[in-house]
Design a protein around this nucleic acid. Structure first.
Length: 433
RNA sequence: GCCCUGGUAGUAUAGUCCGGUCCAGUAUGCUCGGCUGUCACCCGAGCGAUCCCGGGUUCAAAUCCCGGCCAGGGCGCCA
């Protein structure tokens, strides 16, 4: 609409002192002093106080509007410098128009002063996005996403679009959500894994940002049934190559947040340290020995429990580090075994802020070895014919990894519950909004 | 799936151990009134809670017991 074209963001209006402009936003507060009246108007860029005195032409009009919190209004007028108002600038209105009313009372306090529980805020997520804290979280997330795209695009990676509806399990492990697909059954993808590989063996360097689904009945602060992941897959690369790409991508993303989200980080009370590269590379075996040395009950081949993972972080003493060379039993069938030791695979996890935010492997690119590994895992190579076939016409060695978007956002923003970092989380009980 | 803790006005909480003092207190919100410089404005009055649901114990239950649902945390599973 025309009006929108002419609207000036509040932060900009504050700078255009004495110029007639139209601003629009939400009423965050009304302070009525009797004859003089103050309305604090907020848009996505900031807040400004609208001061209405009896001698102001708009006075009686505004008084009769009975504005309340979260009413949406547009205001025509001009910003003026003022020594009295703390912000140093206030807005003198010529006319005010109500674009939409808000119901009263509000479901929770949008200013964030009276706290509301996560569950309550999630029920009214559309309003929660207006709170300074939640708004900051998703601005940070946006910068992480754009930095990821820019870093890889600048280095020649192609963004691919894998399907989300798939015919069968791509990785094993997690349970899949089943759905009807005409007269057949299909599944929601738990990973773009196989599609990334099929793209990388032709495009060489690819990345993607996709949602994935896990039908596990977990109920924890770090798991969701629908998450987004940021992936790469790269040909003519081994695990070491892509670990290098991973740490550089992470450092770039963190640098971008540090640089572009100062306001958000202040709201969240966070200070970002961009880790120095290269990150420490711990082997799985070293990690197990470290834990055993600290008196933990763990034998070679076990996965780390949650508390062991925390202990390990303390022992290593780094914000971010790799655990590489995992036992084959812990990783997927497509992980490339070590040449001299088939019990080990070229797989790695990236631990950041005490949580696993990424994992990757060098993949098996030879059909014969793939069949052998499938059999070792007790799987039937016959059911993977199509997958194996894609490596039968000149598939170069390749490797890749995946970063969990919500988990990375958690660590960067300091949130303890992953639901804070997903706009509309899907967990075992929550399906709306 | 297991264990722990919780569920009280729109929101966030006190009260629960040790039943009666609570037809439930506080903050914020909302309504009305007052105030010409506030800025988390202030001042006064008021509104708003079948104390999550169902059952049980008791003269009496927000409070004790059992079951269910939901939430938060710890595990497991998973990434």
């Amino acid at each position: 609409m025309r009006q929108d074209l002419e609207r000036v963001p509040i932060e900009e209006a504050k700078r255009r002192i004495g110029e007639p402009v139209t601003i629009a936003g939400w009423v965050s507060r009304v302070r009525d002093k009797g004859k003089i009246r103050f309305i604090v108007l907020r848009d996505v860029t900031g807040e400004i106080q609208i001061t209405v005195k009896p001698e102001n032409a708009a006075y009686s009009g505004i008084s009769s509007l009975d504005l309340g919190r979260e009413d949406v209004v547009s205001v025509e007028g001009e910003a003026v410098s003022s020594e009295i108002v703390h912000a140093g600038v206030e807005f003198i209105p010529r006319s005010v128009k109500v674009l939409n009313r808000s119901k009263r009372p509000l479901p929770f306090d949008v200013s964030g002063r009276v706290k509301a529980e996560l569950d309550t805020r999630l029920n009214y997520r559309f309003m929660d996005f207006r709170t300074p804290r939640t708004s900051a979280i998703f601005r940070v997330q946006h910068v992480l996403l754009t930095a990821f795209r820019r870093f890889l695009t600048d280095r020649g990676y192609l963004e691919i679009q894998p399907p989300c509806i798939i015919a069968s399990a791509s990785e094993g492990g997690a349970e899949l959500f089943k759905l009807p697909y005409f007269d057949r059954e299909a599944y929601l993808a738990q990973s773009p894994q196989l599609y990334k590989q099929m793209c990388a063996i032709s495009f060489e360097k690819v990345f993607t940002i996709v949602p994935v689904w896990r039908a596990e009945k977990f109920n924890t602060p770090t798991h969701l049934n629908e998450v987004r992941q940021m992936d790469i897959e790269q040909a003519f690369a081994d695990d070491e190559t892509v670990m290098g790409v991973l740490e550089e991508t992470l450092a770039y993303m963190l640098g971008a947040v540090k640089e572009r989200c100062q306001r958000e980080l202040r709201v969240l009370g966070r200070d970002i340290e961009v880790p120095e590269l290269p990150l420490r590379r711990l082997t799985y075996t070293e990690a197990v020995e470290l834990l055993q040395g600290a008196g933990e009950e763990i034998t070679w081949g076990d996965d780390f429990s949650k508390s062991q993972e925390r202990t390990l972080c303390d022992l290593v003493g780094e914000a971010a580090f790799f655990i590489k060379d995992w036992p084959a039993v812990q990783k997927a069938f497509y992980a490339m075994p070590h040449e001299g030791n088939p019990d080990l695979v070229h797989a790695f996890d990236l631990i950041y802020g005490g949580i696993e935010i990424s994992s990757g492997t060098q993949r098996i690119h030879r059909p014969d070895l793939l069949r052998e590994q499938l059999r070792k895992k007790g799987l039937d190579p016959g059911e993977f014919t199509h997958y194996i076939e894609s490596f039968s016409y000149g598939a170069p060695p390749h490797a890749g990894w995946s970063i969990g978007l919500e988990r990375l956002t958690m660590v960067v923003t300091g949130m303890r519950n992953i639901r804070e970092c997903c706009m509309f989380p899907r967990d075992r009980d929550r399906l709306v909004p």
